Amino acid sequence: MSYLKRFSSGTWAAICKCVAAIHDKNIIPPSLMHIKLGNGSLSLMHIKLGNGSLSSFWYDPWLEGMPLASRFPRLLALDTRKSDLVAERFQNGVWTWFWRRDLRGGIEQFSFSSLLSLLAPINLSREKDIWVWDGSSSNVFSVSDARRQIDSHNIAPPSRKTDWFKTFPPKINIFIWRLKMQRLATKENLEKKGIILSNSACALCHLHADTDHHIFVTCNISRQIWVYIGSWVNMHIPCWASMEELWTWFDGLQIQGKKRLVLRSIWYSTLWNMWRLRNSYTFNDAAFRKSHVLDNIIVSSFFGCSLDIKNIKLIGHCGCKTLWTLCNFLFTFLGALLVGNKILLLF
Rank of each mutant, 00 (worst) to 15 (best):
S125V: 09
A241T: 14
T325G: 03
T270K: 00
L294T: 04
L75N: 06
M1C: 07
L263W: 04
I35A: 03
R101M: 06
V132D: 08
W177K: 09
L42F: 02
I225N: 00
L338D: 10
T167N: 01
N199I: 08
L337E: 04
M235C: 05
L4K: 15
W267R: 05
K25N: 06
S53K: 14
W133I: 10
L338K: 06
L261Y: 04
L184S: 04
S41T: 11
S117R: 13
L115H: 02
H317I: 11
E64V: 06
S159D: 14
T167M: 03
K342H: 12
F168A: 14
G194V: 13
I309D: 03
R89L: 11
E64D: 09
S200P: 08
R74D: 10
V143G: 03
S152D: 12
V19L: 07
W62R: 06
L263K: 04
P73I: 12
F112Q: 01
F216M: 07
G194Y: 09
A13W: 00
H292V: 06
R178Q: 15
F347S: 09
G65R: 06
R278H: 13
K25G: 08
L115G: 04
V19E: 05
L246M: 07
N51G: 13
W272L: 07
D134S: 15
H23Q: 15
K166E: 09
W62N: 05
W99R: 01
V299K: 00
I122M: 03
I35W: 02
C327F: 11
S56F: 05
H206G: 01
Q254D: 07
R178T: 11
W133Q: 09
N279F: 04
Q149H: 07
P121Y: 12
N220F: 12
I107C: 08
N234S: 15
R183T: 13
V94I: 11
G135W: 00
Y268R: 15
V293C: 10
L37G: 03
K161F: 10
T248L: 09
F331Q: 15
M181T: 11
S280T: 13
S138D: 12
N220E: 13
F90C: 03
E108M: 06
L337C: 09
M1S: 13
I150F: 02
L32T: 13
D129M: 04
H292P: 03
H236T: 11
G52R: 02
H34E: 11
G335R: 00
D210Y: 04
L119G: 02
W12P: 01
W232M: 15
I221Q: 05
K310Q: 14
R148G: 11
L76S: 12
T11Y: 14
F329Q: 00
H206F: 13
A203C: 15
Y228H: 14
W249R: 09
A241Q: 13
L116N: 15
Q149K: 12
L179G: 01
S8G: 08
